[in-house]
């Protein structure tokens, strides 16, 4: 994964909890990369992990991608849909990784209390992490169903994929009749990025 010059491979790790919709978000991203003319690979685990377990989806794109999984310390972006999961997958990031963190808190089964100090710990280790409140975002969009696509919009600002590629990817992956609503959500997410200080990303 040590890449140079035009051979840059983008590594985007999405993390969360089974049932949060990581698969759709990562499908959209991978399809957008493909539509933009890149080679792309994506990997995640189904099965047992769907039952409320911790889940990740790896998306990689560039000129030629070999491994479907990202190497530890090599993620360009970590998009986390759940607060504590951000820390669980932090070993995949480095000092220059862009962190987009949803402040959603989901209690693991058989745990009485959400651990304290998570957000502070993320801020200390990754000072440029950007936190997003999913409820506020849902309110802005008008429907919480489209929040994950809005988060793709936040990603879009970092990844420099053409807008047409994103549009094609969204049209192809969201349920019939919701493409326009999803596109609006995507744009809200994207504009959120450019209007406030974004997470830093290692240069190409």
């Amino acid at each position: 994964m040590q890449s140079t010059g035009q051979e840059k491979i983008w590594n985007i790790l999405m993390a969360g909890v089974g049932g949060q919709g990581i698969i759709l978000a990562s499908d959209v991203l991978a399809a957008a990369a493909l539509a933009a003319g890149f080679d792309a690979k994506k990997s995640e685990i189904h099965g047992m992990s769907q039952r409320g377990g911790s889940v990740t989806s790896h998306v990689r794109f560039g000129r030629t991608v070999h491994s479907p999984v990202i190497e530890e310390g090599c993620a360009d972006v970590l998009l986390s849909l759940e607060l504590m999961e951000t820390l669980r997958w932090l070993p995949f990031t480095h000092a220059g990784t862009g962190l987009i963190v949803s402040t959603e808190k989901i209690l693991p089964a058989n745990v009485a209390e959400y651990p304290a100090g998570i957000e502070e710990e993320i801020r200390t280790l990754a000072p440029r992490a950007r936190f997003l409140d999913p409820a506020a975002l849902a309110e802005k969009i008008g429907d919480k169903k489209y929040v994950n696509v809005a988060l793709c919009g936040v990603l879009a600002d970092i990844l420099e994929l053409p807008e047409t590629a994103w549009r094609r990817a969204i049209d192809a992956h969201v349920p019939g009749g919701t493409a326009d609503a999803n596109w609006r959500a995507f744009c809200i997410g994207r504009d959120l990025s450019s209007s406030c200080p974004g997470p830093g990303v290692s240069s190409r």
């Binding site: 669980r88 693991p108 745990v111």
Partner: peptide, 23 residues
């Protein structure tokens, strides 16, 4: 090969999140 990249690490202990029977 050269050394692998060092990832960030937190010293906070997280509760595991195994799959469970649906609530």
């Amino acid at each position: 090969t050269d050394a692998s990249a060092e990832g960030l690490r937190s010293s906070l202990r997280l509760p595991p999140r195994p799959p469970t029977l649906c609530p």
